[in-house]
């Protein structure tokens, strides 16, 4: 992982340790709806940050800004040493270095599992087919479905699809992985197989920003929990502190709602 991160860094920035994502007074509006208000947030290399908060609080929007799926209207956003909020930032390059996993899997339905995983390495990183294929098979081992290489997404269970989606993102050897509610669309019995893969990934030192309602995962794996409400970061704390004694009323109210469920 260390070496991957290092070659994910542009020349001239300091080593793998250090800040890889930094929001500086970021604001974003959808029309007149102020979805991100003055966000200041930094994520260190190797850190696992869980973002939680009530529906509509701006969690998805926050992490979608990190790979430029949503543009911001003011403030600065630095990712892997690049200021991505400036005009003319190379978005395809940035995105090739930041993996993203969606709630709805979003595998390409007309391609086999293997083709889904190989697409990015071949088309974006210009890897040879051979390299891409052996890497893809390795990743399928890692997410524990090596036998599904030639299946089509529609023939996989939700949990398997989400693991392929993770493998697909990892195939780009990203410096950062973003997860937007990766288990929310899954049946309960499949949630753990995905969380296990994510846990392994975190153990290997991947920098991760995870939007999730899986508080067990947050307690076990997160280095830090970020609580959002109304487009603001209300609270950030290590999971122990956050779950034991949240500072704000809103966080406590939120926790009481989801934990009693």
């Amino acid at each position: 992982m260390e070496t991957r991160l290092a070659d994910g860094q542009p020349p001239g920035t300091s080593g793998p340790r250090g800040t890889v994502i930094e929001f500086k007074a970021v604001n974003k509006w959808f029309g007149c709806l102020h979805v991100l208000c003055d966000i200041g947030l930094a994520v260190q290399a190797g850190e696992v940050v869980v973002v939680c908060g009530p529906s509509g609080s701006g969690k998805s929007t926050l992490i979608r800004c990190v790979n430029g799926l949503e543009p911001i209207q003011s403030g600065e956003l630095h990712v892997l040493g690049e200021c991505i909020s400036r005009a003319g930032a190379d978005m395809p390059l940035l995105r090739s270095r930041v993996g993203m996993v969606f709630q709805s899997f979003n595998l390409f339905p007309h391609m086999t599992v293997l083709e889904n995983i190989m697409l990015g390495p071949i088309k974006v990183k210009k890897a040879s087919r051979g390299e891409a294929e052996s890497a893809a098979r390795g990743l399928l081992e890692r997410v524990q479905i090596p036998d599904k290489a030639s299946a089509y997404p529609a023939n996989l269970s939700g949990g398997q699809q989400q693991r392929v989606a993770i493998a697909r993102a990892l195939a780009m050897q990203p410096g950062i992985m973003l997860f937007d509610e990766p288990t929310s669309a899954l049946d309960p019995e499949m949630i753990n197989e995905v969380l296990d893969v994510m846990t392994d990934l975190a153990r290997d030192g991947m920098t991760m920003m995870v939007v999730t309602h899986e508080m067990g995962f947050a307690k076990r794996v997160a280095d830090r929990v970020v609580f959002m409400d109304g487009g603001q970061v209300i609270e950030e704390a290590p999971p122990g502190a956050f779950f034991a004694a949240a500072q704000s009323d809103r966080a406590r109210e939120f926790l009481s709602k989801i934990l009693t469920h």
Binding site: L93, R95, V98, G99, M100, F102, N106, F108, V124, A165
Partner: peptide, 15 residues
């Protein structure tokens, strides 16, 4: 085609 399909493709770094 759902918008998320576009996003997944963009998110890999495709132009």
């Amino acid at each position: 085609i759902p918008r998320t399909q576009f996003e997944a493709a963009y998110a890999m770094g495709l132009t």
